[in-house]
């Protein structure tokens, strides 16, 4: 392959990738720009830089004043953090068991997990609510219990997806690795922790990110269980603000930015680990 041809195809590759990147970045920039724009100007002129007269901090001040962001961040991280950890631990074990073992009822369990992934949350939420109310978790007005009331169904809701994804990756781990470890005298649990987890590290990180994001962004479950202000999590807060804002698009934009920044941080931080996982954990042989 000659060098020239190669560089042309490289350039085309970068153009294609760059174009798509533009579509994913621009909306962010657009929202950020408009969060600094004075009220009323968004509908007439949303594309220019908000400079001079058009610039304002007011949207952020209003958002911060109107809502208790600090508390909501704390609630969101408690909920989503717990959900992520529990999902990764449980789903990893279950996926490993389902992939490597042959036992009666295995395909039944697999079908159940598949089906579980399709259960719309709206169809399970009411029975879950009744059950949790009976157990004295939901609807007590107690902040910590309410957070738990969100965590439990969210774990169940994310588990199926996580199991399916992890199964896909554990399947692609060459079984020879495990066999040689077994010959070296490792127990099954040791194999799981020393072979499988390192090999599928990146997949675990992927699953963790999705579990975190879905939990963080899941407005529906939040709005069902978290009613009182001190329990409110961040997505519920955004919804609250946007319903109050009416056509105050500047306020909406600033709230969106405030809500998105923490997840972006978490994502970018975890992203580093993924890459580490990708390179260090790559399976040789």
């Amino acid at each position: 392959m000659n060098r020239k041809k190669r560089s042309i195809s490289q350039t085309l590759t970068y153009i294609a990738l760059g174009l798509w990147a533009l579509t994913t970045i621009y909306p962010f920039i657009w929202v950020i720009l408009n969060s600094f724009r004075k009220k009323g100007l968004i509908l007439t002129d949303s594309f220019s830089l908000p400079l001079g007269d058009a610039f304002t901090w007011e949207n952020y001040l209003t958002a911060w004043q109107r809502a208790d962001f600090k508390n909501a961040y704390l609630n969101s991280f408690l909920i989503s953090g717990t959900v992520t950890v529990v999902v990764v631990v449980l789903a990893g074990l279950a996926a490993y068991g389902l992939v490597r073992y042959r036992f009666p009822g295995r395909s039944l369990l697999y079908s159940l997990v598949m089906a579980g992934m399709m259960f719309p949350v709206f169809s399970t939420i009411i029975p879950v609510f009744r059950m949790e109310a009976m157990m004295g978790i939901a609807g007590t007005g107690n902040r910590w219990l309410s957070l738990l009331a969100v965590i439990l169904p969210q774990i169940a809701g994310n588990l199926c997806f996580a199991i399916i994804i992890l199964m896909g990756f554990i399947q692609s781990v060459p079984i020879e690795l495990e066999e040689s470890a077994y010959l070296d005298g490792c127990s099954v649990l040791q194999i799981y922790f020393h072979i499988i987890i390192p090999a599928a590290k990146s997949s675990f990180a992927t699953v963790a990110i999705f579990a975190f994001l879905w939990s963080y962004n899941d407005l529906f479950t939040q709005s069902f269980f978290l009613r009182y202000p001190q329990e409110r999590a961040i997505t519920g807060l955004l919804n609250e603000i946007s319903s109050q804002a009416g056509v105050n698009y500047g306020l909406m934009a600033s709230s969106v930015v405030l809500v998105v920044i923490p997840v972006l941080l978490v994502y970018v931080l975890l992203q580093k680990h993924i890459v580490k996982g990708l390179t260090a954990g790559a399976i040789k042989g």
């Binding site: 009411i126 609510f129 009744r130 109310a133 009976m134 939901a138 609807g139 007590t140 007005g141 069902f224 009613r227 009182y228 202000p229 001190q230 319903s243």
Partner: peptide
Amino acid sequence: NDGSATSNEEWKAKVLTDFETGSEP
């Protein structure tokens, strides 16, 4: 402990669900 919300059909339904499950305000 103020659990106020905007009134709409969904809100009405939630309040009724609360009574049904014993978690009314």
